[in-house]
Design a protein around this nucleic acid. Structure first.
Lengths: 157, 157
DNA sequence: GTCAGTGCAAACTTTTTGCAACTAC
DNA sequence: GTAGTTGCAAAAAGTTTGCACTGAC
C-alpha cells in the first residue's frame, strides 16, 4: 500500500470533518482536488494541481484551486512554502512535518533534511501571546553543484 | 547614536567592498537606496522603499530597487522573507540574525521573538552536499487577538 | 569614449474578484 | 427552493524585460 494513498484516507476524513464543523458543502470539486493533492509526494503549486487534473480529464478552474487550498490551510492539512518570490509552493502538512528544507540561494534547488533535536527544541518554545501551531525551518546556502560551478569560474579567471 | 545609522556605515562599507570585488559600478542610485533601506528597523518591501524615497524627493524606478535588492541579497546584506504569498518582505541580515518570527495564520501579524539555544543547534547542523549560509525559522500559529476574537465568535453562536 | 546602470512603459505571471450558472442540502 | 459553490473572464498586484538615455570609470 502506498503511503500517499494510505494518508489520503485520513486526510479526506479530516477534511470532511472540517467541512461539517464549518457547515460548508462537501462538493465533488473539493474532494477531487484534495484527492489529486494527496498524490504529490513533495511540494506542489496551483499550476501542478491544475495540470494533473486536466491530464485526468477533470476540468476545474484555477480560482477553485486557490479557494480550496485556502480551506485546506485553514483546516491545517496543507502548509504554504515561499522559498522564492515568484513561486509559491504548498505541501501536505503531514509530509512537511517530517523534514526541514535547505534552499540553494544560487539555483533555488530545494533539498530536504531531517533532524530530531531541533523540532523538539522548537516545540518547547514559549512565545508570549502566541499559540504555536506549525513551524517552518529553512536553511539558505549553496548546494554542491553551485559550489563546484563557482570554483570552476574562479579558476577560469 | 542610533543603532540604525551606526550599522549603516558598516553596511555601506560592506556593499562598497562587494561592488569592488564584482567590478560593479558604485552608482549614486545604489548607495542612496541602501541608505534608505538602513533606516528601516524591521521588515520592508519594494513599495515601502520607493515611497520613502519619493517622500525624500529622490526619484528612482521600482525596477532599480528590485535590481539593487538582488545585489544586496547576493552580497549577503539583505534577506528575503515570504511570510505570505502576495507580499514579499526583506530585512537587513544583521537585524534578521537577532530574532526569529512568529506569524499569525489568521491575521498575518508578524511577531519577533528571541531564543539562544535554537540558532546554536541550527549552526551545528550538518547537511550533506550543502553549505549553510543563513537560516530562517518561522512559527505559524494564532496570536492572542485572533484567539480572543474566535472565542467571542464561538460564544455568539 | 565606452559600456554598465537606470528609467520608463509594456509585458508577464500569479492571484483575486464579480457575476451568471450550477448543485448540494 | 435556496444558498453556497464554481467557472469564466477581467482586473489587480507584483515583478521582469526591452530599449533608449545617462553617468561612472
Amino acid at each position: 500500500m502506498s503511503s500517499g494513498l494510505y494518508d489520503a484516507n485520513k486526510i479526506r476524513d479530516a477534511f470532511t470533518q472540517y467541512l461539517t464543523e464549518k457547515a460548508l458543502r462537501k462538493s465533488t470539486v473539493r474532494f477531487t482536488i484534495l484527492e489529486h493533492i494527496c498524490h504529490f509526494r513533495g511540494h506542489f503549486d496551483v499550476e501542478m494541481i491544475w495540470r494533473r487534473m486536466e491530464d485526468h480529464n477533470f476540468h476545474v478552474s484555477r480560482a477553485s484551486i486557490y479557494n480550496i487550498i485556502d480551506l485546506l490551510m485553514d483546516a491545517g492539512l496543507v502548509v504554504r512554502h515561499s522559498f522564492s518570490s515568484q513561486l509559491v509552493q504548498y505541501e501536505l502538512k503531514n509530509v512537511a512535518a517530517t523534514h526541514h528544507h535547505a534552499v540553494c540561494a544560487y539555483c533555488s534547488a530545494v533539498k530536504e533534511f531531517k533532524n530530531e533535536k531541533i523540532p523538539k527544541e522548537i516545540a518547547n518554545l514559549k512565545i508570549a501571546k502566541f499559540t504555536h501551531e506549525y513551524h517552518s525551518l529553512t536553511i539558505y546556502g549553496m548546494c554542491s553543484k553551485c559550489k563546484f560551478r563557482l570554483t570552476l569560474q574562479k579558476k577560469a579567471k
